[in-house]
Amino acid sequence: MAGDNGIYPYKPNKNVAIGACALFGISALYHLFQMVRRRAWFYTSFVIGALMMTIGYGFRFVSAGTPDSLGLYIGQSLCIILPPSLYAATIYMIYGRLVIFVDSPEASLIRPTRVTKIFVCGDILAFLLQAGGGGQMANAKTADMGKNIMLFGLFVQLLFFGFFLIISLLFWKRMRSSPKMYSVPQYGKHHWTSLLKLMFAAAAIIILRCLFRVVEFSQGHDGYLVSHEVFMYIFDAAPMFSVQVMFHFVYAADVFGAGSLGKLGDSESNIDLNQRR
């Protein structure tokens, strides 16, 4: 797999990599600040994903200077590929809290307490598969097996995320025909529908990003998408940065209230809705 540009099929652009590192880093630090200040601990996986993206493009900048380094190549690859699974985990947790917040568990196809358990478990499986496959793809002897494992992990992620999108859209449809749609007061800066619409947009972007990665990896290491760096920034870096930025403007704590709904219990009754602002 090594060539004139080391492990890469092209000459990596160091300037773009350090620029992406800076943008993701600023966003990650702001997310970390928001999470701590508002005690929104269910954003932890999202913050970790944002920090991983920052580290990934930092690794990519260093790796571009030493393109023969297998360790740096694997590090940048995994830290860029894996974060969407962490974003998704937070989206699942927000959905469960949102259903409880509007006191409408009957409108959700799956009970909100089970949504988090089911989809986060699927997300963890997808995360581990992609991590394992990504590590093997950098080795010529195991590249094909790694590609297949990576593709399977992406398909698992798409399956769970696609099913989640259907569940959340069905919830929205049911709520639109329910009196509770207009009876839930706005306790924070944003109405709960703004947060739900944000989740729809983020889910659609992540699904499109996953589809890009499926096509990219299915073409192999010499494929057209893989051999042109620009596509990674257009169809992966830009969409994932957009997701991070979107969540700056409509923050769950601005809907639920700072510190409220921080932990989802075993039943809806365990959540004290009086903690809302």
Rank of each mutant, 00 (worst) to 15 (best):
L159R: 00
A88S: 13
S194W: 04
Y57L: 06
E268Y: 09
R209E: 14
N148D: 14
C79K: 02
L159I: 12
K141R: 10
P84R: 06
L29Q: 01
I205S: 04
P105A: 01
M53H: 14
F171M: 05
S85Q: 13
M181Q: 12
Y224S: 15
L264Y: 01
V184G: 05
S242F: 15
K117I: 15
M232E: 09
R60I: 06
H248K: 06
K117E: 13
R60N: 08
A204Q: 06
L196F: 05
F24M: 00
P185N: 07
I149H: 00
D222T: 15
S69F: 07
I110P: 07
E216L: 11
G96F: 03
W192I: 05
F200D: 03
A2N: 12
Y224A: 15
D272K: 10
K263G: 04
I167H: 07
F101D: 10
A138H: 02
S218R: 08
A2Q: 13
I91K: 00
R209N: 13
G188L: 06
C210M: 11
T142A: 00
E216V: 06
V184H: 08
I166T: 08
A17G: 01
R37F: 10
I166H: 04
P185C: 09
P105H: 04
S104W: 04
L125F: 11
G259C: 04
I91D: 11
I118C: 06
S183Y: 01
G3E: 03
F160S: 06
M93F: 02
P105Y: 06
Y182R: 13
L264S: 01
K180S: 10
Q130H: 05
G146W: 00
F127Y: 08
V215K: 13
F127H: 03
F212A: 01
K263E: 07
K180E: 11
P9C: 05
L211H: 03
A40E: 12
L273I: 09
A2Y: 12
C210Y: 10
I81L: 15
S27A: 15
R176L: 12
F235R: 02
W41Y: 12
L70C: 03
L32S: 04
F160I: 06
G153C: 01
I271R: 05
F171L: 08
A204S: 13
S63W: 07
C121E: 09
N148F: 02
V115G: 11
Y224K: 14
F231H: 13
H228Y: 07
Q275D: 14
G96T: 09
K141Y: 04
S104K: 12
E229W: 01
A126S: 14
G56N: 03
L29P: 01
S183G: 07
Q76M: 10
E229M: 02
V230E: 10
S227A: 13
I100Q: 07
L72E: 01
A143Q: 12
R39H: 09
I18V: 13
H190W: 12
A238R: 07
A107N: 14
F171S: 03
